[in-house]
Design a protein around this nucleic acid. Sequence first.
DNA 1: TATTTTCGAAACGCTATCGTTTCGGAACGC
DNA 2: GCGTTCCGAAACGATAGCGTTTCGAAAATA
Lengths: 204, 204
Amino acid sequence: MTRAPGRPRSKEAHEAILRTAITLIREVGYDALTMDAIAARAGVGKATVYRRWKSREALVVEAIGGIVAAVPDPDTGSAEGDLMQLMRATLAMYADPASAALLSGLVAAMARSEPIAQAVRTGFVGMRRAAMRRALERGIARGELRAETDVELALDLMSGPLFWRFLVTGGPVDQALAQGAVQAVLRASAPDGSSPHPTEGRAP
Amino acid sequence: MTRAPGRPRSKEAHEAILRTAITLIREVGYDALTMDAIAARAGVGKATVYRRWKSREALVVEAIGGIVAAVPDPDTGSAEGDLMQLMRATLAMYADPASAALLSGLVAAMARSEPIAQAVRTGFVGMRRAAMRRALERGIARGELRAETDVELALDLMSGPLFWRFLVTGGPVDQALAQGAVQAVLRASAPDGSSPHPTEGRAP
DNA sequence: TATTTTCGAAACGCTATCGTTTCGGAACGC
DNA sequence: GCGTTCCGAAACGATAGCGTTTCGAAAATA
């Protein structure tokens, strides 16, 4: 690895810029995000920003990748227990004003920028999704869910209603909703002849 | 009713402005929507726009109210038939690039403006929701669904996954998804002891 | 006909953001 | 110590949207 001459780029500035970008998306959304504001808030010259990223989009893509939400990876012994624990973590995200604003701010950006859409899908959304997928697959392996279960469909049946209520209907994004979605998936994918075993409630 | 003196306001201009606002939200989204562009495209002076609406937000709220999507109100005799027909209409909306762009353009606006959020909820989203609610309630009256069914939850279990896939995962918003969501609701809300009767498929 | 109001079009001054450039100084390799 | 590169800060000209105002013409009432 050759070492370039001259002063090396400041790691602190780099991280401060990414951190500030996320903070500002939370506060004002993606569309209202300006390079001037990022540089000023990060205590950095604009030239320093443009030296590293050629556009706002490129900066945001990298910043999104840096959001590493703490997603649990539970193994309670039952699909219902695992899924509900993951759903509670998602409820907490929607309940946190900062995270919620970030999400709604990114939705508009996703619709207009494919790179940003991919970053969100493989980033913090993808992490949650992967954890839920593992919980479902363990449930299938245990025989709690049918082997032919459409996992992608099941995932969207659980994540979708929360997102929909949060962004569109404005209805409560609460435990009852999470429970209803999980129960619907468990009942729909229950092995033939098995009776449901609602240990946490029944739904809808 | 007294008649004001002077030249009356042009109904044509009024409607052209509202129509153009919708068209431009589809094309560029809400954030990039400008009064100059609306006036120019509508063939109208900016003063004419500002004479009627004091802000872009007020204009958009009224324009949203004018979107009267043709929502079917089916009565096929079964909850499954009715719901699937409504879901197919929703699929068609997502499949239409114009409507889809409009929806994603409005999501960002809803997050930042409560009047706009209300207009969307009571407007074209509310119409679809009301039709689905009627289908569910007929199903309850017929005994296809339990009387204690949480109708609001059931509605969100069906609408949410489509919205989620469309905006976030980018997965297919197709018949299989609609069917999976409807089947999950029907199974979850089936009366005790009844066997499901999947006439259109099984899911997930 | 006289008066009033709206019409489309254009220009106004103002502010904000863009991406670039310049500046003196600081941090590195050689 | 020298050359190079990056640093934060500031200013640059350009573009764009804001909301308002002005203009002569058109459309209504009285």
